[in-house]
Structure formats: C-alpha cells, structure tokens
C-alpha cells in the first residue's frame, strides 16, 4: 500500500495490541488509562507542532519520550514493551 495510507495490517495489529494491553491490565485499569493518556498527549502535541509549523522551536513529545514513558509504565511486562517498540519509527 502507498506509504501515505495506513494498511489494514497496521490497523489490525494496532487493534489487537490495544486489546492485549486492555486485557493484561484488567486489574489495573489506571495503567491502561495512563497508556491511553500518553498516546493522546503525543498525538495532541504532534498536531500542535504541525499547526505552529515549528515556529516556536518546539517539536512536541518525541517518539523516544513516548517509549520511555511507556517503558516505565510497563515495568516487568517486557513482551508488551517489545511489541510497542515495533510500532515506533526508528525504534
């Protein structure tokens, strides 16, 4: 598929990954919510950067920062973290 479009494979793996996390942390919904919050913040900052076109010299939350936040959240859940790394560009 063209690089500008999300392929069904990418969408499906994202869906099953989100489901996996949701199920893994059924007893700790606050961890799952924190994970959603990290992704939400990342997306929001990316949009803000796009809108300001970097004029303020800010690049928003980087993927490295997202990864380290998720890493501290998923402590002891190495499989989830490894899988998360597969979604990140230049991981």
């Amino acid at each position: 598929p063209p690089a500008s479009e999300t392929s069904p494979v990418e969408f499906d793996s994202a869906i099953s990954y989100v489901n996996k996390i949701k199920n893994r942390f059924l007893d700790h919904p606050e961890i799952y919510r924190a994970f959603l919050e990290i992704l939400h913040t990342y997306q929001k900052e990316q949009l803000e950067v796009k809108e300001s076109r970097g004029s303020r010299g800010s690049s928003g939350m980087t993927e490295d920062e997202v990864f380290s936040k998720v890493a501290s959240l998923f402590k002891g859940q190495e499989d989830l973290l490894a899988e998360f790394g597969q979604f990140l560009p230049d991981a």
Binding site: S13, V18, L39, H40
Partner: peptide
Amino acid sequence: SYDFTPLDSSAVYVLSSMARRRRASQS
C-alpha cells in the same frame, strides 16, 4: 470481542499512524 471506547480508538489510530510512518521511513 472488540468493545472500544473513543479513547481506545484514538490509541489505535495513533499506533497505526506510527506504524505507517515507520514503514514509510523504511521503504
């Protein structure tokens, strides 16, 4: 079954966009 809230869907969207950019940067 997939019982997704809007927040869940937004996480799916963010993850699949990341994966798309990863593919774009690799090709």
